[in-house]
Amino acid sequence: MTLEWQNACKTFTDKKAVDNLSLEVSEGELLVLIGPSGCGKTTSLKMINRLVQPDSGAVFVNGRDVSEVPATELRRHIGYVIQQVGLFPHMSVADNVAAVPRLLKWEKDRIDDRVKELLNLVGLPADEFADAWPSRLSGGEAQRVGVARALAADPPILLMDEPFGAVDPLTREVLQREFLRIQSTLGKTVVFVTHDLDEAIRLGDRIAVMNEGRLAAVAAPGELLLNADPFIRDFTGEDRALRRLARLSVGAAIGEATPITAAGFSGGGESGAPAGSVRTDATLKEALSMMLEAGETSLEAVSPAGRRIGKLTMEDLLESAAGTEAS
């Protein structure tokens, strides 16, 4: 499923919330909408499931103008996750997840199977959580249920409005990592709103930066961090070079394409490589940190299995930080 905003505008009383937004999202892509608060990112998101009606312009889902699809019909096929989760407090976790399949009048057995499958997918064992009440869940657990509920009817599109914004940083990182894992198997078309640049860089295939209702830039994370536009430079911050390094893997820097994996994702002591060496699935930011800490200008690069692959030098880092996106 593809998405497209075409010259979409929205004005609230006196303020132009979205000003002539034109943007396409391709099938299976995770597009992050980011920008300072009040920049129109949430309003743009809500145009897709018709919670907001554009004053002019249009939004297309798979080439079809959403204003021509009945709102309830449209929304049942678009997963929607919001920051405050909004679980139904009078329903068990299982009933919350089953909400959309019930609206679609699935058979009971099919719903039960689906609920179990989804709870397990988001890391909440169904045996333990299906009958729990939302008021008993921690913030992280509640948002896992929120994601499961959004995915329940297997919608091709997922809209996420700062979904991990209300949980503590540690939980947020865990949720981001698991969401990437889920997304890598499901391949949904995702629009993800956030104000957290690190989150955007971690998750986004592309990042669209909005400012005062306008699209300021849209690019892959690596490119965005090289963008020379003053607003983008300012928005991405003094440490944009470090953020760039956080997006690149050690393997990629030494010409051995390796995706950043769950273990290498967040750094910390879990990479498990011997002293003086770094795993190829770790990020260059971690590698730099290890070099600074050890006072070395080079590290041995080893595969996740422990096999020696090559040498990562400070020159490799400098080249990667300045160079083009390795992906």
Binding site: N49, L51, A71, T72, E73, L74, R75, R76, H77, Y80, I82, V85, G86, L87, F88, A99, V100, L103, G146, R149, A150
Partner: peptide
């Protein structure tokens, strides 16, 4: 909002 957003 969740209720409306899911298509009720």
């Amino acid at each position: 909002e969740a209720a409306r957003g899911m298509g009720m």
